[in-house]
Amino acid sequence: MSGGTTGGGTARSGTAGGGTAHAGTAGGGTASGVGRAVVVDRPGAHRLVTVDTPEPGPGEVRVRVAAAGVCMSDRELYDGRRAPGYVRYPITPGHEWSGTVEAGGEGVGPELIGRRTVAEGFRACGRCARCREGETSLCTAGYEETGFTRPGAFADHVLVPARLLHLLADDADLRAAALLEPAAVVAAAVRSGRPEPGERIAVVGAGTLGLLAVQLLAASSPGELTVIDPRAERGRVARESGATGALDPEEAGRLRGVYDLVVETAGAATTGASSCLLARRGGRVVLTGMFAAGATGIDPVHLSVHQLTVRSVFGAPSAAWSYAVRAFTGGLLDPGPLVTHELPLERFEEAMTLVGGGDPGTGKVLLRP
């Protein structure tokens, strides 16, 4: 991995990921100053650079980043394992974040200034048939996402369209709110799974997605909520998050046709297929983990004979974001305890090493500008 050195280069606002930021603030003139941003020039090579404070264009806001989560997709971006078309180098990563609105461009109301917020990552067009149906994560206009093809939040500031904001309470914990992006993905899975009170539910994987899923699913009053993960420590955390039990994959492998709903979050080579085996006849399976090429396929004979409903999730539509923010504001979702490491931007390389390092004591890693 390349070292990240402050002053290793100077990038004008908007250069990491393409495009030039436009001037125009709501509520008071043109901002000036400098900030910092992590720029990944190519796989394995990054810099911590000094950048001009970005100016929001029409319909945009500038957000002062409070915290930004690091996930496996950021590691994939850094390692060069993200699928072509889903990353654009050079790029400032950071798609899980929270912060405070500092300025708005033309057309942005001054009432947004000073508000604590998160924002959707997908830059959906809002005009295609899928967007008009509310399925903004299926936008047909082409893939664009903050932190992958547009500059993200591993920086002091991030620019986003104001229409993508989800405002938080004035006293919201911004450290915990940085996990609302993965919580929105989980909310999309939970909404797809349609949990009902008293059901037997399994969550496969006890990473960030799995533990957030446990919290949201616990609110549906399941009769049983079991987490399946090979790491005993993660099983303990899952119980603290609301699970009624924890199994390792070997124990779970002896079960067949048990659960009404299975929410898969691990994205491991075999977990898609094994999750379908756990579901009862007529049960539901939601695949949330990101699978690599070559993962074990799902047996179509098993699907047809058992009449399973299988859904998949990639990102989160606007409705899932609203669901997650409501759950957070109402106290049903508390991501804060999942954070185990908080590092400054200067320690980006250390954050990359922690994520995916295999230590069961490593939960969510945050970068704090």
Rank of each mutant, 00 (worst) to 15 (best):
S137H: 15
A103N: 05
L112A: 13
G134P: 12
R127D: 13
T140F: 03
E144M: 08
A119N: 06
A124H: 15
V101K: 03
E144V: 11
G114D: 09
E106S: 13
A129I: 06
R130K: 14
L112N: 12
T117M: 13
T117N: 06
E133W: 08
E120Q: 14
E120Y: 08
G109Y: 03
G121K: 02
E96F: 01
T136K: 05
T117A: 15
P110E: 14
G109F: 05
G107I: 12
W97I: 02
R132A: 13
G104K: 03
R130V: 02
G114W: 11
G109S: 15
A141F: 05
F122T: 10
P110Y: 04
G94E: 04
Y143W: 13
R127G: 10
G121E: 07
P110T: 15
F154A: 04
V101H: 05
R150V: 13
L138D: 08
T136C: 07
G142I: 01
A103C: 05
G105Q: 03
E96S: 07
P110K: 07
T117Q: 10
P110R: 12
P151D: 14
C128G: 08
E106K: 11
W97G: 00
A153S: 15
A141V: 09
G126R: 06
G152Y: 00
A103Y: 04
G121N: 13
A119K: 05
G99M: 07
S98K: 04
E111C: 05
E96A: 08
T100M: 05
G134W: 07
L112P: 11
T140K: 05
V101F: 07
R123D: 15
A153I: 00
G107A: 14
L112R: 15
V118F: 03
E120C: 05
E106W: 06
H95A: 12
G99N: 06
G99T: 10
G142R: 03
C125Y: 01
I113E: 11
